[in-house]
């Protein structure tokens, strides 16, 4: 792999452009990821669980052929909420930290590659790997659903896939930030798992308790839940699939009535912020820190 970079550097007298550097680093990262154990493991886990969810939910409709917001979509949303952040956070967390630990980082930075290029390239490469993994997982689900003749609308599934990728981008960005901050790969991954647990369970359970104990008003509850990218993903999926959030009770009804069509923009902005801000912070820190 280093041969590619070295060859490029030798061929051209001037340093290679930003774009080509980015592509080279991203491709290297993607290749590493695809060959790694976590990628295979997560892809397999997502595909198998997705298969289970699709199969069970398709069987559960009892052949009534009734249309509605079904168990399939709900099950898939749940699955994505569990697995995609775990994948993206740990993958991001391992990226820079493990390179640094192995001394690879110093070596890479000795090439005509800037730190920003390296960071962004790694991010893009990992994102591509995650997309590939999601494509395979959802592909298996779609195959099962089409085989079982389940009445899932294609548009819903496409929305769900797109939004899952958005969620992957957000949480990957946070993972990369952890990786830049941590001294050791194990610490970074540990922090990522802890953060995953927090985002998936702790914040929601805390918010539940807060709702009951502190009598949060609906707009407070909604604002607080918009902080969590997982909740944003969930609400956005429901909004896109069902075009109505009243299934989420008073807070959802409030969101629908108050914001209506602007919800797409709001949810999109939340996920975009989660993708951009941690990555920008990571870049700022990374460009100042010593690579070893």
């Amino acid at each position: 792999m280093n041969a590619t970079i070295a060859a490029g550097a030798v061929r051209t007298a001037t340093p290679p452009s930003f774009g080509s550097n980015l592509a080279t680093v991203a491709q290297r990262e993607l290749r590493e990821a695809v060959r790694s154990r976590w990628f295979v493991l997560y892809t397999l886990a997502f595909a198998v669980l997705g298969l289970g969810v699709s199969y069970v939910s398709a069987a559960g409709s009892g052949g009534s052929g009734l249309a509605g917001f079904g168990r399939t979509t709900a099950g898939l949303i749940n699955l994505v909420l569990l697995i995609v952040p775990l994948m993206a956070l740990t993958a991001g967390a391992a990226s820079i930290a493990s390179d640094r630990e192995r001394g690879m980082l110093a070596y890479l930075l000795a090439q005509p590659v800037s730190r920003i290029e390296l960071l962004l390239g790694k991010y893009l490469g990992l994102a591509a790997a995650l997309f590939a993994s999601l494509c395979v997982g959802f592909g298996v689900c779609a195959a099962v659903l089409s085989f079982k003749g389940e009445g899932t609308r294609v548009a819903s599934l496409v929305w769900l896939i797109g939004l899952s990728m958005g969620l992957a981008l957000s949480t990957l960005s946070v993972g990369v930030l952890l990786s830049v901050l941590a001294r050791k790969a194990s610490a970074a991954v540990g922090a990522a798992v802890f953060l995953w647990l927090t985002l998936v369970f702790v914040t929601d359970l805390g918010l539940m308790a807060g709702t009951v104990a502190m009598r949060l008003r609906v707009e407070q509850l909604l604002a607080l839940s918009l902080v969590n990218p997982l909740q944003v993903f969930k609400m956005w999926s429901l909004h896109a699939v069902d075009a109505n959030l009243d299934v989420l009770g008073p807070a959802g009804l409030y969101a629908s009535e108050e914001f209506g069509g602007r919800l797409h923009a709001i949810f999109g902005l939340c996920l975009a912020l989660w993708s951009v801000v941690p990555l920008a912070v990571a870049a700022a820190v990374f460009s100042r820190r010593s690579p070893v």
């Binding site: 491709q27 993607l30 290749r31 990821a33 695809v34 052929g65 009734l66 249309a67 591509a128 790997a129 997309f131 590939a132 993994s133 999601l134 494509c135 395979v136 959802f138 592909g139 298996v140 689900c141 779609a142 195959a143 659903l145 089409s146 085989f147 003749g149 009445g151 899932t152 609308r153 294609v154 599934l157 496409v158 896939i161």
Partner: peptide, 29 residues
């Protein structure tokens, strides 16, 4: 109100997804 059978389009989606997953992996060499 049963939704129209979308098996064909779902199947197409499945193939498309699997292919694009494969294409990304392929892009990595």
């Amino acid at each position: 109100y049963a939704s129209t059978p979308s098996a064909a389009s779902l199947g197409a989606l499945a193939v498309g997804l699997l292919l694009s997953g494969g294409a990304i992996v392929g892009a990595a060499g």
